[in-house]
Structures are given as structure tokens and as C-alpha cells.
């Protein structure tokens, strides 16, 4: 089924897609998300809104999506299975579609151990692959998980995440295949710093023919400083930051490290663009949204196509 998703249309046209993300505020002020939105105007084809990322409580993804939708964006609602059971999930899927949201990213979510409420009870009624199946069943079969029919189907472009840098490496392409089989139409990857390993994963993906069944958007995150690079390398599970990135940032004066991080990011995008099977880029500038335009511009991704 075709949806009203701008992202789907851009990919359909064969354009190299650009997405980015907005982290919702830790409060009820809608202007904070509008401000982030302003920085991304005309820069992206669609914008993700994270769902209490790292298990820290923030404004809900769906609410922020609506605010961004009103600004003219095509938001991607992120949904984790950590906090919702199948009843809440299906309810939010219907709600998202009713509010004109066209895209959903299906995730299991960071464990609450990392967040500001480690005492919370988690849900995990279903996993991320089962969430993909849930959206697909509701959309394509018009049925709830119970088998009962729903009145108007939610027309959502279905996305999922992939982390080529997590272990065990040899199953990472297979896990992508499972997500594709479940119904994922686009994939946004973990931030790529180790291009060699990503390329190796991408080879496997292409060998399996998965790149023809799903649109892979390669994830990038600019480093603000060598401190951030070290933190990502040592503290963030499933993140692969090669020493050469750290060395390169170390090699420039502190006040120039951010600039160097942007340069690295742009070079990475240029290399990713050449890789077979990469259909777009997902720029995650964490609390640095003002740099997304510069990165997209630098990588020659602007202007975005008109749809």
C-alpha cells in the first residue's frame, strides 16, 4: 500500500533521501520543539521524533510529531515497545494515523536502566520485529492483533532500525532480513563511524538482495568534541568509534573540534552515498540541530526535491 509519506515518495523517485531527528523537550513547552523544527526547514524529507530516548522522560513523540506536522514537516513517529503493551501500541498507531502522521519507526527501545527512572517496570509485551508485523497487519489486513477488523486502516510507511556495529556481527544482516520479512520498508541505521565495518555489513545486505526490498538510510552523527567521541566509544553500547576518528579530533585545537566533527560527518556522507544499497542518510545531530543544514549543504544534499 502506498501512503501519503513524503519520505516514501522521495525514495520512490529514486532520490537520495535525507532525514534528521528532533529530541522532544523535558517539559511541556511546544516552542522548544518548534525551534528545533525551524532549524530543519527545507533541509530534510522527513523528521524523526524520538520516543523517550535513553529512557529519559520527555514530551511524547506523537505530540511533537503533530507540532512538527503543523509546521509542514512529514514526521516519523518513533515507537518503542519498552513502555507500551499491545493495547497501547495499537491505540497509538491509530492515533498517529488519525493525526496525519505517515511514518513510524519500530523499536524495542533502550532499557530503562539507562534512564532517569531505572526503578520503572518495563513492558516488552512484543519486540521490535513484532511491532513491525503489528503495523503491517493493521494497515494491510485491516485487522487488530486479536483478528478483529478495524474501521479505517492506518496508512503508515513502516521503518525499523539496524545496528551493523552490535554483536554478534554475523547475524546483523540476518536480523535485517527478519525485519524486512516482517514488513519494514525503510531502515535507519545506528551512527556510522567505522565505514569499513559498515561496508562489510552492506555487502552482506546487498548479497542477500535486501537493498532491493528495503530503503536503507545510513545514520550519521557529527562529533562535537573529542570528549564526545570518547564517550560514544566507551560508554554507548553498540557504538563503534575507531581510534582514527578520535586521533583526528585530537589533532585540532579544542575550539576547532566541532568544525572538524562536521567535516568528518560530511566526508562520511559522501562515502556512504557511493555505496551500493544506501538510499539516503539519517543525520542525528544530538542537541546540535542547528548544524544539520550545514552538513546537508556541505554534502551537496540541498535543495531537497519538491514532491
Amino acid at each position: 500500500m502506498k501512503t501519503e509519506s513524503r519520505l516514501e515518495k522521495v525514495l520512490e523517485k529514486g532520490e537520495f533521501a535525507v532525514t534528521s531527528e528532533c529530541g522532544p523537550p523535558r517539559g511541556a513547552d511546544p516552542d522548544l520543539i518548534r525551534k528545533k523544527g525551524e532549524l530543519l526547514k527545507g533541509v530534510v524529507d522527513a523528521v524523526n521524533v524520538t520516543d523517550c530516548q535513553t529512557s529519559v522522560v520527555r514530551m511524547s513523540s506523537l505530540s511533537c510529531c503533530l507540532i512538527l506536522k503543523e509546521m509542514g514537516f512529514d514526521p516519523i513517529v518513533q515507537m518503542v515497545t519498552r513502555d507500551r503493551n499491545r493495547i497501547a501500541i495499537q491505540s497509538d498507531i491509530l492515533g498517529a494515523a488519525a493525526l496525519g502522521i505517515n511514518n513510524i519507526l519500530c523499536l524495542s527501545g533502550d532499557h530503562q536502566r539507562f534512564g532517569d527512572h531505572p526503578q520503572a517496570k518495563n513492558v516488552y509485551d512484543i519486540d521490535s520485529i513484532q511491532l513491525i508485523m503489528t503495523v503491517k497487519q493493521m494497515r494491510d489486513e485491516g485487522k487488530f492483533l486479536s483478528g478483529e477488523e478495524l474501521t479505517k486502516v492506518p496508512r503508515l510507511f513502516i521503518g525499523a532500525a539496524a545496528n551493523p556495529f552490535a554483536d554478534p556481527f554475523e547475524i546483523r544482516a540476518l536480523r535485517l532480513a527478519k525485519k524486512v520479512a516482517a514488513g519494514a520498508q525503510f531502515i535507519q541505521t545506528q551512527c556510522i563511524y567505522n565505514l569499513k565495518r559498515f561496508e562489510e555489513w552492506m555487502h552482506r545486505v546487498v548479497d542477500m538482495g535486501l537493498h532491493e526490498k528495503v530503503c536503507i538510510l545510513a545514520g550519521v552523527t557529527p562529533m562535537k568534541s573529542v570528549g564526545m567521541a570518547r564517550y560514544m566509544k566507551n560508554m554507548v553500547p553498540g557504538m563503534d568509534v575507531p581510534d582514527e576518528i578520535i586521533e583526528r579530533l585530537k589533532g585540532v585545537p579544542k575550539e576547532k573540534q566541532g568544525e572538524e566533527g562536521i567535516k568528518i560527518c560530511i566526508e562520511t556522507i559522501q562515502r556512504l552515498r557511493e555505496m551500493e544499497g544506501v538510499r539516503g542518510v539519517h543525520i542525528m545531530a544530538i542537541e546540535w540541530e542547528e548544524k544539520v543544514r550545514e552538513i546537508a549543504e556541505g554534502a551537496g544534499l540541498l535543495p531537497r526535491p519538491r514532491i
Binding site: 524495542s108 536502566r113 519486540d127 554483536d167 547475524i171 553500547p237
Partner: peptide
Amino acid sequence: SKSLLNGPCGGSSNGKCEVDPEVDCGWQ
């Protein structure tokens, strides 16, 4: 740690769970 049924999440690293470096990744 997430009771996943379809394979390891993206937080599996060197055979360990993202929740605690002392905990084995069940899926590994």
C-alpha cells in the same frame, strides 16, 4: 533483559548485555 523473542537488540556488545557489562547477552 528485554525478553526479546526474535534475536538480539542493538545493544549487544562483545557478548554482553547493554544493561550491565557483567550480564551475558542472552541472545548471544
